[in-house]
Each structure stands twice: as C-alpha cells, then as structure tokens.
Design a protein around this nucleic acid. Sequence first.
DNA 1: CGTTTTTGACCGGCGC
DNA 2: GCGCCGGTCAAAAACG
Length: 582
Amino acid sequence: METRPERHRHDHVHEQQAQEGEEDDAAAAVMEHGAALSLQRGATLFGRRRQHDEEADRRRRGEIREVDFFSRDSGARGQDDGGGRGVPGGGRDDVNIGLDLLTTATAATTSAAGEEMMAVKNQKIEASAVEVELRRVVEENRRLRGMLEELNRSYGALYQQLLQVTQHRQHPADLMINRSSLAHTHLTTTAASHNTSSTRQLLEARASSTAMAQPHAVAAGGDDEASDGAEEASPSLSNGGNNNDDADGKRKTSPDRTAPPRENGGEQASSELPGRKARVSVRARSEAPMISDGCQWRKYGQKMAKGNPCPRAYYRCTMAVACPVRKQVQRCAEDKTILVTTYEGHHNHPLPPAATTMANTTSAAAAMLLSGPATSRDGAAAALLGHPALFHHSSSIPYASTMATLSASAPFPTITLDLTQAPGGVAGSGGGGLLPHGLGLHRPPGGIHPVTAVPAMPFPVPSPLASMFLPQRAPTGPPMPTGLQVARQQQSVMMETVTAAIAADPNFTTALAAAISSVMAGGAAHQAQPTPRGSNIIGIAAGDQANGSAGAAAIAGPTAAGAHAASAGSPRFATQSCTTST
DNA sequence: CGTTTTTGACCGGCGC
DNA sequence: GCGCCGGTCAAAAACG
C-alpha cells in the first residue's frame, strides 16, 4: 500500500505528459484521468487478490470485465464520476461503476458486496491520494522552475559583485604567481587537453578553489568600494546599479559638456592611469554592422582609421542617460567579415539579461586585464587557455605582426575575445587568420604554445556553445607543428561554430557568457594546479557564503583568481593596446 | 516631431 | 612647434 501511490504518481505524471499537448486544462484533466486510472488499476490489483471471487461475480454480471473497466467508451467514463470527481455535464451518471459494482455485488452476495465496497473505498482513497500527490508534484515542479530562474538571477548578481570586487582589489602579495608557475599551468593545461581525467581533476580543483574564493571576494567588496578611487578606471561592463559613472567622470574627454573637458586633466591623471584604461575587444564574424549584445547604442561618430579602409564607428550606450559605456565597431582590414567590437566603460544602469551576460563576459576579461600587472594578466589569460572563447591579451602577443597592431596612440590595455576563425586552413597568418593561433593564447616566443583544453561546461549551454566545447576535428590546414596544428584546427572548427551561433542565435550573448564562464572556471583549475592551494589567497574566506550558487562560484572564483593572479607580474605587458588595423 | 545618423570640426596626445 | 591620429562633439540631415 505504501509503494502503490508512488507508482501511481509516476503513472499520472506520464499521463500528464501525454495529455499536456492536447488540452490547456491538462492539469485538471490529467488529475481526473489519473484518478480514474488509479482507480481502475487499484481495482485491478484488488481484484487480482480475489480473482476467483470476482470471476464468479463477472460471470454473474456478464458484461462487466476488466477490459471494459479500462474502456473509455463504456463504463470507464462512468468510473470517473464514480471516483468521486463529479465531472459535470458528462451525462454519463447513468453508469456509475462504483455504485454499479456495489449494486451488482449486492445483488450477488452480501460478503462480495462488502468486499466490493471496500475495494471502491480503497480506490477512492488511492485516487485522492494520487491526486494530491500529483498536485504536489506539479507544484514542486513549478517551484523548482522558479528556483532555477531565481538561481540564474542570483548568479548574475553575484557575478557582478564579484567582478566589481576583483577588479578593485589588488594585493600584490596575495598571489605570487610567476611566469614559471604560469608556464607550468600552461603545460598542465596542455596535458589536460589530452586527458579527460586530468581535465576533470582540474575542474574539481577549480570547484574547490572557487567555492572558497568567492566568499573572500564578496566579503572584501565592502571596503573596496570605499577605497577604490585609484582603480575606478577599471573598465567593466557590469551593470551593477551601484556602479558609479566613475569611468565617465575620469575620462580624459568628458562626454558631458557641462564638465570642464580638459582642465582637470592633471587630476584625472592622478586618479586614472591612462594605461590602465582597459578595453575588451570582441572579434566576431558577422555580416551585420553590429553584433547584438543586448544593449542600445547610439552612434556618435565615425572615423577612418589609419591603415584600415573600413571606417571605425563610435557608439555610446543609450540605455541610460549618462551611461559612459562606449564601444567601437570596425571591420578588419584583412578580413571584412570580421567585426571587431571594443567595449569600454561601466554601465551605470541595469541591463537586460542578454546584455548582462555580455557585460559579465567583457567585464571579466577587463577585470583580469586590469586587476594587476602583466604577468598575472598573462596568467589570467593563461587560465583561459585553449578555450573557444579565447582572450587574446594583445600585450602578450608575440605574433602581433600577423594578427594585430599595437597602437602607440591608444595606450589602453585591450583584451580580445576572439570568436572568429576562418574555416580550415586560414589558421596561419593570412586571410582570416588575423589571429594565427586561433583560439590560443598568444605567448611570448619563448613561451609555451597554445593548446586546446576542453573542460566540461559548468552548466548546460546552447547547443552551438556546447558543440564548440566539444573536441572536434578540423580539416587539414597548412603544415605547421603537429600539436599546434591540431589545436588550431580544432579551434578553427569551434570558431566557425561560434560565428554561426553569433549570426543565428539571438541569445548569443547568453551563450557567450556561458562559454566564458566555463572558460574562466576552467582557468581557476589551471591556475590552482601549479599553486599550492594554501597559497591562493582568494580562498581564505569563511564559508558562510558558500551557499551561493555553484554556478556563481564556478564563475566568480576564476575571476577572482584571474584578478589576483594579475596582482603580480612584470611590466612587460603594460599599457599596450590592440587594434585590429595593421 | 522626436530620435538617430551623418559628417565636418575640434581637441588632446604623441612623435618628429 | 607642427603635423598626425584617435576620439568626441554638435549641427544638419535622415529616418520612423
């Protein structure tokens, strides 16, 4: 008796699934039908225990058989009513199985009537129990759905907070990740890319480290807000409502004409290091004049950039009156199908989900770029190594001559999120191969070659993104070092997928954010590997905030790791920027 | 008619 | 100091 309702519940769920496509009032109908079905099955089970008695009854009743009992056309409909549901307007109350059974049984023998009555009562009890259970399951399903949505929202909010904290927090002594360790990280990543179990281990390490990192980062957020004056130039597209328009106020050229445009340049110089004004560049293959990032933009200028026949368009965010976020859109000179979008500044207003995810992505990249000197940034980038959404830290690009030009007149550190990769063969230095390493992180010539790591996604992503995280074989390209060639080919295929996703998927930014989240999450693992766990300062906080969503932790942790990793490094990559013109 | 885009002018930074 | 260049402004034009 105890297991029976459970079984009936499943049956009802199944029935519900079967009926939902037919009726809008599926829930009620299902419950009706489910109750009837339960009743019927209960009757069947009960009847089997007394098979001989009922066989005798059936012989006496003649037409009433179990097959008819399940039939909708005959007595089964009446059974619905007889089940106590009382469906109005049925017009079938002339057939009441329960009463009919009772009546028939009464006509037969008194003992049989009592058993039948008991059976009907049991069936009714079961039906009501199943109905309650079904309602409970439906309600639970609804609640879980709401929880999932809430979880997503919380994730976004936490991620925003973490980004703000990490980009404001600089403790050079926190992480002493030097190049050798980073190289080790890279090598580890290389190994992981060819070893699923290793990747899994890395991811597990990431989870453990990030789960601890986030509380620290969040807890540190309070004083950072008050003491981040010198770091307000950190470019973040985060949409935190608390985000002040600091970036705007510190612009060398104030967009607000009410403020003295350039008289306070010296003061700005003191509070804002021009070289620290990072940008996040997204390269995507698109025929459209702009990629859809969820924000509203207004074009305020267009210039012909030197060395590029394609004009550069300047856009300003118009989702809020004084939002300082700007972006530049320009096509590559070498491949006009590649659209380069460069973001700069903080949003000072809430963003729609799609824009939020994009902001998270770019903000994370900018935070990693800005939160420390070059080595750590390199390390942060190394954390992103081998992922489809690859950050190209222009400052650490050894092959810049073939992929980007360092602009001396634009001393903004720029991190490039490359979502372009020409179809097979152009992974080299020509054509669409502005980024000869495709998705790979560009390392100094003496460094380690980029590799492709394929981590597991922390959460489901749209199929294009999911596919781009899968190891794929690419058509053979031009000859090149074997391992690197394979990696580039894989990256090439993934880039095609991503590009297609950009073009086709309106939720591209969401998918992109998921990808970046995965990238960053994986990065923490890579970074945690060569570094003793205890040395990772970001993991020291108490666990009272460990109840945050796992997704947020998975994302935030690496971000924090990247930010902290950026705390140590050499001046080697400082204050260079990347433009796509050559 | 309000909003957006276009486009020439302006400004500051930088190199020579 | 001058010229180049990137970035921005704002009036005019275009658009819905």
